[in-house]
Design a protein around this nucleic acid. Structure first.
Length: 368
DNA sequence: AAGGAAATAT
DNA sequence: GATATTTCCT
């Protein structure tokens, strides 16, 4: 299955050049109904099924094609994606993101400032739930446990800083009534006793930046531009992001997100494999194609789990782990037929390794 | 200012 | 309890 915005405009330079007016529209929601999808398969039943799915997701199905050549053609013309079945509906529902992403890459300068998805942390919204908030009260105990624990690692003094005469944090005490809840009573009790310590002088926190959607997408692009996660460092990263009109981020925001990004990558078993292949060289000018196999769902380790973003680079989920497929991928540059065939053969030889999944199972701690 | 870790919010 | 994000420290 290949996907592109249209195959009609004949030139094979990137023909995805959004108009200004189109862009702001895009940033909010890409209209599935203007996305043309070419479905290719040699089985007519599959074709029909796929067509149904596509239509259900409001895509325009141009044709149900079973010609390999169509794939090649589409690829040449900038297909964003190439999936093997079976494909679940989530994948389909999110196809449009590729187009948005591609457009962003092709015309970063045109993109209007992205409004950060900021979550207001209103102190007064404490009233939302009563689910186990005991922690607040316990945190003092924790400090003791921790210091003990830290002794083995690094000795770092707990952050206790008293600057001003402590002002008891009343934020939640005015929670009207509805606190017939034990946890709260407990914590309040503690506060009453020894509020002389700890950081009760709550300095207002910055609103949280939510690294989802466009922001995350651009973050990843910026990381790529800087030479990958190992080379990217906060300040240049911040500048990159500002260049694509993302404003309002601080260096700290970026640094911390980068930190998390690193942690995520380290958690990835196959990270080493990934490093062996210089993806950045492939990904930069255009995205690699991805082949999905069996029921593995591709996703980005960088996205939040609630974000369905099925085809990010070359990763997929497997047994709750993010795996990386090291198969060489097809960039959509102007390969001649022969080169394409060679690459395709390489791809076919490469099966997403069931050995890997087996290996992981074997290494799983035995359950009882 | 980078990197890392604690604190805090979700 | 786990994660995400901010804040602080070296």
């Amino acid at each position: 299955m290949s996907l592109r915005n249209t195959v009609e405009d004949g030139d094979n330079t990137l023909c995805l050049q959004p108009e200004d007016s189109e862009i702001s529209f895009l940033l909010n929601k890409f209209p599935a109904s203007t996305t043309n999808v070419l479905v290719v398969d040699n089985d007519i039943i599959t074709l029909l099924n796929m067509k149904t799915l596509m239509i259900r997701c409001s895509y325009q199905v141009m044709s149900d094609d079973n010609q390999i050549e169509s794939v090649m053609n589409a690829t040449k013309h900038g297909a964003c994606d190439y999936l093997l079945k079976p494909i679940n509906e989530d994948v389909i529902a999110n196809i449009w993101k590729h187009i948005v992403r591609k457009r962003m890459i092709s015309k970063p300068g045109l993109i209007p400032p992205v409004q950060l998805d900021v979550i207001e942390t209103n102190d007064l919204n404490q009233e939302k739930d009563d689910s186990m908030t005991v922690d607040q009260g316990n945190s003092e105990q924790n400090i003791d446990n921790m210091t003990e624990e830290k002794a083995t690692k690094k000795i770092r003094l707990p952050r206790i800083k008293e600057t001003q005469p402590i002002q008891p944090y009343l934020g939640q005490s005015n929670g009207s009534d509805k606190d017939n809840d034990v946890s709260r009573t407990v914590s309040q009790h503690n506060d009453g006793e020894q509020n002389i310590d700890k950081k009760h002088k709550k300095k207002p926190r910055k609103p949280r930046v939510s690294w989802t959607g466009d922001l995350q997408m651009k973050f990843l692009q910026a990381v790529d531009i800087l030479g990958g996660p190992e080379k990217a460092i906060p300040t240049p990263l911040l500048k990159c992001l500002q260049e694509v009109n993302i404003e309002g981020l601080t260096r700290d925001n970026v640094a911390s997100h980068l930190q998390k990004h690193h942690i995520n990558l380290k958690g990835n078993l196959i990270y080493q494999q990934r490093r062996e292949f210089d993806w950045s060289s492939v990904c930069r000018p255009s995205l690699p194609l991805l082949v999905l196999n069996n029921s593995l769902t591709a996703t980005s380790s960088f996205m939040n789990s609630r974000d369905v973003y099925p085809v990010q680079e070359n990763q997929y989920h497997c047994n709750n782990q993010v795996m990386t497929n090291t198969m060489p991928s097809l960039p959509y540059t102007n390969y001649d037929q022969h080169q394409l065939q060679q690459l395709q053969q390489q791809q076919q030889q490469y099966q997403i390794p069931h050995q890997l999944t087996d290996m992981i199972r074997t290494n799983e701690p035995g359950r009882t």
